[in-house]
Design a protein around this nucleic acid. Sequence first.
RNA 1: GGGGAGAUGGCAGAGUGGUCAAUUGCACCAGACUGUAAAUCUGGCGGCGGAAGCCUACGGUGGUUCAAAUCCAUCUCUCCCCA
Length: 403
Amino acid sequence: MTKYPKINEQMDLIRQGTDEIISEEQLEQKLGSAIKNNKPLIVKLGCDPSRPDLHIGHTVVLRKLHHFQDLGHTAVLVIGDFTAMIGDPSGRNKTRPQLTIEEAQEYGQTYIDQASAVLDVDKLKIVHNSEWLSAMNFNDVIRLTSHYTVARMLERDDFEKRYKSEIPISLHEFLYPLAQAMDSVELVADVELGGTDQKFNLLVGRDLQRDYDQDPQVVITTPLMEGTDGVKKMSKSYDNAIGLTDEPGDMYGKTLSIPDELIVPYFELSTDVSAEELQNINSRLKDGENPRDMKRQLAREIVTIYHSPEAAKAAESNFDRIFVEGDEPEEIDEYIVEKSPVAVLNVIHDAGLVSSKREGRRLIEQGGVKIDGEKISDINSEIVVDKPRILRVGKRKFLKLVN
RNA sequence: GGGGAGAUGGCAGAGUGGUCAAUUGCACCAGACUGUAAAUCUGGCGGCGGAAGCCUACGGUGGUUCAAAUCCAUCUCUCCCCA
């Protein structure tokens, strides 16, 4: 009669790769009543559509949401279009552009498209928080804010830090956690997921639900993934992210550039390898096997998830050609040159391989430009395109010159 | 409402009349090396130019000066303290 796995089996899966569950007892209770009443749990994940470029760090929590889908529960993705329209000023002197409704909608869709690599979109319930938040009037807002105190707001880590280091905090930023909590009330969420940096916001949801006489949601946080630099958390703005829409070659290369210590965490958080396989990788590393081989496997896994096994294979052999053997890739974009003896500097500039001639000069001076494998040293060098020529700028940029 | 401090290149943060296209660190790019787009070392890191040089730039605008990121006025924004 039951379509749900046993509670302890569910718990095992849920615990995998999570940072914290607040609280496990409540979760078990909720799972129990879900089975008893044959009523799936409402599992909520909010997303910020203002930056729709997802990277594999985002997929950690999406993967967790997928687990709940697998267990038969209702996954709800809340597109934070309302909050995105207001424009989060944190970060300062950026004057972040406020999104229009259309943009927020469009970005939301992009988000869903990318998330579909990890989630079961057909079973996903998607809502926009503008549906209820924009309907609130000032009276509602005041009543909402009265549920929380300034002192409690300042408990939040980043608010506290900003306050102490004299970085401005706008009043409306205090409304963000409340708005997000309102989403939980509106959805009567049983569980809310988020990265560890979201813990505060998620907890506010619990408090608010209690005030609204709801059973408080269980909060589950997932670890933040470190970026490819191994120093900061993964983020597009730190330029240390592996984007879900990255080309296979980029994905593969970026993965190989991670520090060795990140191999296991990456496997754990961003791939679907089994616990046994993870164990295996761990012991191979301990036995002193060349970490490169594990890293290559990791890179293949990742490219396979977002592209295909074939793309992974191609990316790998391409990588070997270029970086291991110093050879050219098999496929190179063509660029048509109009007149035949043409200055190398002009070509690399016109073709967009460098952003300015100044930069092109620097590269030539430093020996970073090659034609058919021959280093160019003279800034005024011209090239005769009597046959296709391979132009290489730096390590990774190639162009086949034709006429 | 009163008083004080500040706004500098992607970020952090020096510089307080010429020697400043602006010290330094991070990030970034290239070269060498390497299992790697890791680490390390070397070079570079506004634009045009072969170069000399020129142009644009230190929150906005206007001014003083032979000369301003630096001085003055004003505007915008931010932080702190007192009420």
